[in-house]
Every structure is written in structure tokens, then in C-alpha cells.
Design a protein around this nucleic acid. Sequence first.
DNA 1: CGTGGTCTAAAGGTCTGACCCAATCTAACA
DNA 2: TGTTAGATTGGGTCAGACCTTTAGACCACG
Lengths: 251, 251
Amino acid sequence: MPTGDRSAIRLSPMEVPKASDVLANELREHILSGVYPEGTPLPPERELVVQTRMSRTTVREALRILEVQGLIRIKAGRAGGAFVQRPGEESVASSLELLIRGRQIRLASVHETREAIEPSCARLAAQHRTTGDLVRLESANAAIAASGDLDEFLGNNVDWHVAVATASHNEILTGIMMALSRAIYTTTDNEGFINAEVRDIAVRAHRSVTRAIKERDADAAVRRMARHVHSYAAAALEVEDRTTVSVPEED
Amino acid sequence: MPTGDRSAIRLSPMEVPKASDVLANELREHILSGVYPEGTPLPPERELVVQTRMSRTTVREALRILEVQGLIRIKAGRAGGAFVQRPGEESVASSLELLIRGRQIRLASVHETREAIEPSCARLAAQHRTTGDLVRLESANAAIAASGDLDEFLGNNVDWHVAVATASHNEILTGIMMALSRAIYTTTDNEGFINAEVRDIAVRAHRSVTRAIKERDADAAVRRMARHVHSYAAAALEVEDRTTVSVPEED
DNA sequence: CGTGGTCTAAAGGTCTGACCCAATCTAACA
DNA sequence: TGTTAGATTGGGTCAGACCTTTAGACCACG
């Protein structure tokens, strides 16, 4: 008689979660439920040890997990410890950045995504902008016009686009835009295709989008932003094709 | 003479990285540079200890960081260890999920984002779809039509939308859509606004979008998807307004 | 005064070494 | 020829010590 038939009891494969994961999940649920306001200190590690009867190693691993996920911030020293933090745009941005870098994603994909997102950002910005948003947009634009070397120009450029996203008052879109901007920023700087003319065109496009946002003209904002992003993407990709050998094909 | 002026020397706040972060960054750069193909095993922990002259605690914390970031996968047991893994859509999805849950983001933001993204997904899908994508789309649609209870319907619904994103062959958009879908899935199920009529409308809308993708009619795909998502969002938000008390105002 | 030195307590960071558990391989055994 | 009982190699956990960083208090000296 084969071993497995001795008993009628049948069990499905079971998962044995790690102790640190259990603790991390527990704490995460508490944090996400919103019971603790931002900045609430968690108990010190040694206190968690006695409360949970786990070892300090385990407790620390759990805290490390939450820290990487952006749910807590850990300070050393007296009056230090783990403090509740609500996940922000940067955590989304950094994970998107990992995806883009790690998968060596075609620059085309990044631009496609921008073309999908930015017009909508512009629309929402036109609808929801505050005067404070306007100030930021215009000062960002001024900084672009006044910027000297390429690096400064690109940085200010990114700032303006992120400012538009911020003005949309949509945290998800903002997070995504931050990530895409960073990706483009780090991949574009080695190209020399940004000459004075291109910069001038960009400044003017930004100004016209800003104006539409100021006048709460959603449709114009969408249209102008779409055109701006599209032409920028086309130019960048053209340079890509000239500089790189491989041209990845679809389908 | 005020205190701060005695010396002209100015320093910015300095960062003292932790040992585990140093190691994690080092390993991360190696992984992201793409030198190690997916699945390459990292040295065992004890081996890393002798190589880096750090303690096992430190090494393990570094590995935990990379694991949470989705850059390695850790298996226990003999022939186990840490294996290189390229970050996938799920890591983006989960971080977006944290953002949405943790910030208790208005459902309106999620729908806004969907309205921004999905039409573009549809366009790209129409342009880049393979026949395999088509099969998946159609079977997903069939599953929706045949689904019984609400939960099953919602799950299949999500599957179809993700299938559209997948057919766009844009990993960034796919990751975002996965996250948004999950968020909507988990926040919608408690509402009873999905009756037979709504479901029927959804199925028909999906079919028409699928047809446009099949015929590579990008413009129609965009248009139909935009209409579908918009009406769905409007319906969901209307129910929201009826059920919840607070109506967050903008500006 | 205020500037700097010193001390102390609290907290995270690191290290050591041991042991436990899981997965796999292997070789002996029925 | 299967089976099965070690043996081996790996991660997971634990306990405890020590180091480093920070805040705060206190003091001493110019």
C-alpha cells in the first residue's frame, strides 16, 4: 500500500510565511488603515522585541521592509526610531525607475507613456490649478529661459513638466510624471540634439500651455501639450535612431 | 556679530550611508547594468560575508532591500539563495497600490488616471497587437459575459483591461494599469451599482473596442475606449457621491 | 554671556556565533 | 529498482554583546 493512501486526510500545499513578513504585514495594515497620523513613532526595536517575542533580527528585517516600501522613516540616535510616513510620489517614481532601467525599456515606451499622460495632466491642471500652482509654473518657465548649460536646462525643463503634473492635483499622475521625467533626464543628457533653437521652441510651447492653464482653457491645454510632447518625442527618437544601431521592431 | 557669520565656510548637510545600503547599492548597480542575466545566482550569504568583510546581519539587510525592490528572489534550502530578477510590472503595481491606499486617494483620482491611460493603451494596442493578444482579449471578453456573481465579473473585467494594456506592448503602461485595476477592484466591490444592464453595456463596449484593435483602427480604439472608461467612471463616481457623505472639493 | 567640552541616556547599527528549518542530493537498503 | 535515511548546503531565527549617533543637560572657562 503506497504511503500516501494511509489516511483520507488531504491537504493543499501550504505557505509558511517568514516571521519578518508576518510582522511587516501586520504593521503595514496598521499604517495603511490610517489610524496613525504621519509622524507617529513606532515602538523602539527592543520594545517590539518584547511585545512580539521575536528576535531583534526579525524585528529589524520587518522594519527594513517597511522602510524600503516608504511606509516608515528611520532615524538613528536618541529620540530616533521608526516614524510612520505615508507613501509618497517618490516611492512610485523610484519603482518605475527600476522598471525602466532594469528592463532596459525602449525610450520609445517612455515617450509613449508621456504622450499618454501629459495632455491629461494639462487638462486637469487647467481645471484644478490654484494661483500658487500658476506661480510655480511661471517661475519654472522663467528658469528654463534663463538656464545656461544643457544640464541646467534639462533640470529646469523637468521641473516645469512636474509642476504641470502637480497642478493637476492628482497624486498618481504626479508620481508617474516624476518617474518618467527622471528617466528621460538621465537618458537624454548624453545627446547633443538640444541646441538653442530647440530650447527656444520648448520655452514658447511651455508658455502657451501655461497660458491655457491660467485661463482654465482645458481643451487648449490638452491640445498644446499634446503637440509639444509629441514633437519633442519625435525629435528625441529621431536622434536615437541616428545614434544607436539597433532599431527594435514590433510584432 | 551674529553667530553664523564668523566663518565663510558653508557646508550642506551630509549623508552617512549605512553599511547595508552601500552593499545594496553596489549590488543593485551590478544587477541593473544588465551584466547578470535573469536567474543568475548571487553568492551565498556566508560567501558575501567573507568577500565584503561585513557581518551576516548587514549582508542580509542588503539582500532584504533588494528583495523588496524586486531585484532578487530568495529561495531557501539547498541550491537556494538569491537569484537575479528583473523588476516587473508587479513591483510598480504594488507601490502604486501603497500610494493609493496609504494616501486614501480619492477614487476620482484613480478614475482620472484611468481616463488618461486607457485610451492610449487602446491606441497602442491597435498598432502593436499580435494575434496572441487578440486571442487573450477575446477570451477575456467571453469570460466576462459568462461570469456569474459580481466578484467574478469584476475580476474578469480587470483581466480584460489589463489584456488591452498588455497588447500595447508597453511595459510601463501595463504596470500602471495593473495597479489601477487592482485599486478599482478592491474599492468597487462593496457597491451594488453593477446590475445586469451595466454589465451588458460593458460587454458590448469591450467588444467594440476589441474589434477596433483587431482591425488596427487606432482612432476608433481610442474613441471607444475613452467613451467606455468615461461613462464607467461617471457612473462609479455618482454612486460614490450617493453613498459617501464627504465631497472633497478642489481649489 | 556664549562657546565649547563632557557626560549620560536612548536609540538604531553592526558583529558574533550558534542553532533551526528547508530543499536537495546521494547512497545504502529492501 | 524504487524508497528512504542521512548528509549537505543553503536561508531563517535567535540571543547577546558592543559600537555609533543623537538629544539633552550640565559645567567650566574666557
